[in-house]
Amino acid sequence: LLPSFEIGAWTEDDVYCWVQQLVRKGDSSAEMSVYASLFKENNITGKRLLLLEEEDLKDMGIVSKGHIIHFKSAIEKLTHDYIN
């Protein structure tokens, strides 16, 4: 489970856990499981996660359009939940 809904306070480890949970919950393929490490390697914290754009995801090595859409949708939901 994630430490809190205060996404802005999430550490790199918290984001890593979130990506792992996202991959487990989704209908995503096994190749998506490597993405948790990509987020950690790129020092993505909660604040940075909320700022990620499609180009950032591509720069991190996420090239599948479907996977990018999956992440963007999940990040938008997080942003919405965080604001409300």
Rank of each mutant, 00 (worst) to 15 (best):
L1I: 15
L1R: 11
L2K: 14
L2E: 12
L2R: 12
L2I: 15
L2D: 15
L2G: 13
P3E: 15
P3H: 12
P3N: 15
P3V: 05
P3A: 10
S4V: 07
S4I: 05
S4M: 09
S4E: 13
S4R: 09
F5G: 15
F5V: 14
E6A: 06
E6Y: 01
E6K: 05
E6D: 14
E6R: 03
E6C: 04
I7L: 07
I7F: 02
I7D: 04
I7G: 01
I7K: 01
I7V: 14
I7A: 05
I7W: 04
G8R: 11
G8I: 07
G8K: 09
G8H: 15
A9K: 14
A9R: 12
W10C: 00
W10G: 02
T11Y: 00
T11V: 07
T11F: 01
T11R: 00
T11C: 00
T11N: 07
D13M: 02
D13R: 03
D14R: 01
D14N: 01
D14T: 05
D14Y: 00
D14S: 02
D14P: 06
D14H: 06
V15T: 06
V15E: 05
V15R: 00
V15P: 05
V15W: 03
V15Q: 02
Y16N: 06
Y16S: 07
Y16M: 10
Y16G: 05
Y16K: 09
C17H: 13
C17N: 12
C17A: 12
C17T: 11
C17D: 14
W18H: 04
W18A: 05
W18S: 02
V19M: 00
V19D: 07
V19L: 07
V19R: 02
V19P: 01
V19N: 00
Q20H: 08
Q20A: 06
Q20V: 05
Q21V: 02
Q21P: 02
Q21I: 04
Q21L: 03
L22W: 03
L22H: 02
L22E: 15
L22A: 10
V23Q: 15
V23M: 08
V23S: 11
V23C: 12
V23H: 13
V23F: 10
R24P: 12
R24V: 13
R24G: 14
K25Q: 12
K25V: 08
K25T: 12
K25M: 08
G26M: 11
G26Y: 13
D27F: 09
D27V: 09
D27E: 06
D27Q: 01
D27T: 13
S28M: 14
S29W: 12
S29M: 09
S29E: 11
S29A: 12
S29I: 08
S29L: 08
S29D: 11
S29Q: 11
S29P: 14
A30D: 10
A30T: 12
A30H: 09
A30R: 08
E31W: 07
E31R: 06
M32E: 07
M32P: 01
S33T: 08
S33P: 02
S33H: 11
S33I: 04
Y35K: 08
Y35D: 03
Y35N: 04
Y35A: 06
Y35S: 03
Y35H: 05
A36F: 03
A36T: 01
A36S: 04
S37M: 04
S37H: 13
S37K: 15
S37C: 06
S37N: 13
S37Y: 07
S37V: 05
L38S: 06
L38K: 15
L38N: 13
F39H: 01
F39D: 01
F39I: 04
F39M: 05
F39T: 01
F39V: 02
F39W: 15
K40F: 03
K40I: 06
K40D: 03
K40N: 05
K40R: 10
E41C: 05
E41W: 04
E41P: 00
E41V: 07
E41M: 05
E41L: 07
N43T: 01
N43Y: 07
N43Q: 12
N43I: 04
N43L: 06
I44N: 02
I44P: 08
I44E: 02
I44T: 03
I44R: 00
I44C: 05
I44S: 00
T45H: 00
T45L: 02
T45G: 03
T45N: 12
T45D: 14
T45V: 06
G46V: 01
G46L: 00
G46P: 02
G46Y: 06
G46C: 00
G46D: 00
K47T: 14
R48C: 03
R48P: 03
L49K: 00
L49Y: 05
L49P: 01
L49H: 01
L49A: 01
L50S: 12
L51T: 14
L51N: 11
L51E: 15
L51H: 11
L51D: 11
L51R: 10
L52Q: 00
L52W: 00
L52E: 03
L52A: 02
L52P: 05
E53F: 11
E53Q: 15
E53S: 10
E53W: 03
E54P: 04
E54L: 05
E54N: 07
E54H: 06
E54T: 04
E54I: 01
E55Y: 02
E55V: 06
D56A: 03
D56I: 00
D56P: 01
D56Y: 05
D56W: 03
L57Y: 07
L57M: 06
L57D: 01
L57G: 02
L57Q: 10
L57A: 03
K58M: 05
K58P: 04
K58D: 06
K58T: 10
K58R: 14
K58C: 08
K58H: 15
D59C: 08
D59Y: 05
D59V: 13
M60F: 01
M60G: 01
M60V: 04
M60A: 01
M60I: 12
M60E: 10
G61T: 02
G61V: 03
G61E: 00
G61I: 03
I62V: 05
I62G: 02
I62N: 03
I62R: 01
I62Y: 04
V63D: 08
V63L: 11
V63T: 13
V63S: 11
V63W: 10
S64L: 07
S64T: 13
K65N: 08
K65W: 07
G66P: 13
G66Y: 08
G66F: 08
G66K: 15
H67T: 08
H67G: 05
H67L: 07
H67K: 05
H67I: 08
H67F: 11
H67N: 06
I68W: 01
I68C: 08
I68P: 03
I69P: 04
I69Q: 14
I69F: 09
I69V: 11
I69H: 13
I69M: 12
H70S: 08
H70Y: 15
H70K: 08
H70A: 15
H70I: 08
H70M: 13
F71N: 02
F71L: 11
F71W: 02
F71G: 00
F71E: 02
F71M: 14
F71R: 02
K72D: 05
K72S: 05
K72A: 05
K72M: 14
K72R: 09
K72T: 09
K72G: 04
K72L: 13
K72F: 06
S73E: 14
S73Y: 06
S73P: 00
S73A: 12
S73W: 06
S73N: 13
A74T: 03
A74K: 02
A74M: 07
A74C: 10
A74N: 06
A74R: 03
A74P: 05
I75D: 01
I75F: 04
I75A: 06
E76H: 09
E76P: 00
E76M: 10
K77N: 08
K77C: 06
K77G: 07
K77S: 09
L78T: 07
L78C: 00
L78M: 11
L78I: 01
T79M: 08
T79V: 09
T79Q: 15
T79P: 04
T79A: 13
T79Y: 10
H80N: 13
H80M: 10
H80R: 13
H80S: 11
D81K: 10
D81G: 11
D81L: 08
D81Q: 11
D81T: 12
Y82G: 10
Y82S: 12
Y82V: 10
Y82P: 10
I83Y: 11
I83V: 12
I83M: 14
I83D: 14
I83E: 15
I83C: 14
N84D: 13
N84C: 11
